[in-house]
Design a protein around this nucleic acid. Structure first.
Lengths: 145, 145
DNA sequence: TGCGATTTAATCGTGTGCGATTTATTTACC
DNA sequence: GGTAAATAAATCGCACACGATTAAATCGCA
């Protein structure tokens, strides 16, 4: 039992690691058709929910910092998915806004959701419960960090 | 409800992404003291369970391929955590074995488990159940890939 | 026996994540 | 008003992940 205790966290962390990798692998080819990567897709989801966020806002939503976001956003800007502009009210910050193309992708990419859902399982209630438990875990881990 | 369906997978995938990042962030400083990264730690766990595995065996255990593993294992070899030797019985494959230092880390790193467990939550049964559900999800995703 | 198919690692290029540092701007306080 | 502290993004270096390709060794089958 002590032995079990010493291994559980490894298995829990590995289960997360493994499931996250598997999810990204599933998304990759679907997103590639739209010229997107998985984290880029998550940025778009955040912007579809609320356009015109500061880099820090996106960082808070995605749990990432400017060292990760800045290059990622620059690539997305180069792909004409979004615009980065200094905030005129405070030149320290940068406002990230969707372009038409970035906005239009919301419709095009809508089918992806269905594919992933099908791959995840048939019982929707179960998936919702699982998501909630994983979110609770993430919250606890963040609080301990 | 349809709307909910269209968002659930995003949230499920993001919950995974977020929880996995949070877990890695928690491990990072603990592992850094031993000169390890998170994936390197997972390789060690696999080797502690069974020493002397081929690169492909490790890949099957970790769901990774040689494009990821080879550089990772080379870094670990440079750090004298393990040895890489061509299999004399089949020179195509490479056998990965723990060094004394790699083996000794199992004891040194044992305390890390406890820290992660404490951060994950107090209810052990709940964590086991969560791990099982995540593993089930990972299995489904892999099958669909 | 010989040669094409298969298997196994390795290599290469791109895109994250993140610790540490730097630069530019604003705030706070004297 | 001037300057130190604080804040926001950017930069840099390193280590994954992975698609695509390559190289070497073995297998299989005529």
């Amino acid at each position: 039992m002590l032995d079990r205790a010493l291994h559980l966290d490894e298995l829990l962390c590995f289960a997360l690691y493994s499931a996250n990798n598997a999810m990204a692998r599933l998304y990759r080819p679907l997103l590639a058709r739209h010229g997107l990567t998985y984290p880029q897709y998550l940025v778009l989801v955040a912007l579809w929910q609320r356009d015109g966020q500061k880099v820090n806002d996106l960082g808070a939503a995605l749990n990432l910092e400017s060292n990760t976001l800045t290059p990622l956003l620059k690539r997305m800007e180069a792909a004409e998915l979004l615009q980065r502009r200094r905030n005129p009210e405070d030149e320290r910050s940068v406002i990230v806004s969707l372009t038409d193309r970035g906005g239009a992708l919301q419709q095009e990419a809508a089918g992806i959701s269905r594919c992933i859902l099908e791959a995840s399982g048939e019982d929707m209630a179960e998936l919702i419960a699982l998501r909630d438990r994983i979110q609770t875990l993430a919250t606890r881990l963040k609080a301990s960090g």
